[in-house]
Design a protein around this nucleic acid. Sequence first.
DNA 1: TAGATTGTTAATCGATTAACAATC
DNA 2: TAGATTGTTAATCGATTAACAATC
Lengths: 205, 205
Amino acid sequence: MISQFIIRRLPRYYRYLLQLEELSVESVSSAQFANAMGLTASQIRQDLNTFGAFGRQGYGYNVRILKSKISELLGLAAEKKTILIGVGNLGRAVIMYKDFIHRGFLLCGAFDVSAEIIGSKIGDITVQSIENMEKYLKETPADVAVLCIPSVAAKDVVSALWKCGVTAYWNFSHYDVKNDYPEAIVENVHLNDSLSVLSYEISRN
Amino acid sequence: MISQFIIRRLPRYYRYLLQLEELSVESVSSAQFANAMGLTASQIRQDLNTFGAFGRQGYGYNVRILKSKISELLGLAAEKKTILIGVGNLGRAVIMYKDFIHRGFLLCGAFDVSAEIIGSKIGDITVQSIENMEKYLKETPADVAVLCIPSVAAKDVVSALWKCGVTAYWNFSHYDVKNDYPEAIVENVHLNDSLSVLSYEISRN
DNA sequence: TAGATTGTTAATCGATTAACAATC
DNA sequence: TAGATTGTTAATCGATTAACAATC
C-alpha cells in the first residue's frame, strides 16, 4: 500500500514534467527536480523509486519517459465516463472546466432538479432532470459522479448512484460518502476548509 | 510553529461542531469526536491541547465553547476584504459561493480583462476592468485576492496586487505565487491535482 | 465517593533526510 | 576513465498512538 503522501505529490510532479517537456528539456536530475518542487533530492528519488527505477546514474531522469510513467501510474490515459449532479454555479464551472478531459474524465451528462435549468445547454451538455438519472445510467453506465449539490441532497443522490453502479465520486459537498459507503472511491474538495486554512494563516500575522 | 497537519484538520473539527450545535448537543467526548472524524481519541486530544485545555475531565468538551475556540483560532470572525480576479465560469461560481462570508471573507470587487464581461453584474458585484484594479485598491485596500485566472496571466496580476499591498491569495491557478513572493500567504486549490488523485484511486481497482 | 474522561508523558510508527556504494 | 547522479540502506525527525495519573 503506497502512502497517500506520495500519491498526492505525483500530480505536481506530473505538471512539472509537462512544463519541462514544453520547454524541450530532455532530462532532469533529482536535485533540479527537488529545487523546483521545494523538496529534497532524497525525497524525489525515494518517491519515484516506490514505483520503479526510472532514472539513470550520471544522467538523471528522462523527462518524456518519466512523464509517461507518472501518467500511467495516475491512470490519466484511461477514459473515465463521468456525470455531474447539480448544475448551479459551481456545477457549470466544472462542466466548462477544460482540463477535465486531460485527466481522462469524459463528461457524458449533467443532472439537476430545477425546472429552470433542465433542458438548458452548458457547453456540449444538455442538462437533464434528475428523475431521468437512473434510467440514463442503465443505458449508459458511468464510472464517476461529480457532486455539486448541497449536503442535504447528497445522501439520496449517492444512494441512487451507488445502486446504478457508480462507485467513484468527486465530491464538492460536505456529505461524507465514505461513511455510508466505505467501499466508495471518493475525492473530496472542501473549498470551505481551504478558505478556513487561509483565514488561519492570515490571522496568524 | 504548529504543524500543518493539525491546522488542516481544524476546519473539519469546526464543521463537525457546527453540526452538533445544530442538533443541540451540549458536550462531546474525544472518543465520540474521534469516531465521527475517523481518527483516534488520542489524536483529537493532542490536536486540541496544542492550543489549550478546552475540555473537562469526566465531561468532555462543551460544543459551544470548543466551536468558538476553534473559530477564534482560525480567525473566522475577522473581516477579510477580498477581491476576485478572473470572472470566468470558476470566478462566477466563487462570487456566488455563499459560505465565503461565513468564513469572514467579504467580497468587495471583481476584475476581468474581457470587454464582454466588464460592467456585468454577478450577484451584488459589478465586474470592473482589470485596468481599474490598481486605482481601486489605492482607494479601497484589500487583504485577499482570489485568483481565477490562467497561469500565464497570474504572474503579472500578482505583481500588481503585491505592489498594492495584497499579501494573501486564494489561488486556483497553477502559478506558484510563493516562488516569486516567499512572504505571501497562499492557499492553493489545484482541482487538476485532486482529479489526478481520483484517477489514481480508480485505476488502482 | 466512584466513574468518566481529560491532559500529558512515553512509546511507536512512519515519513523524511542523509549517506554512500553502484553504475551510467 | 572520471564525474555525475541514481538506487537504496541507515539515521533522524516528527506525527500518531498508547498509557495513565490528574481531576471534574
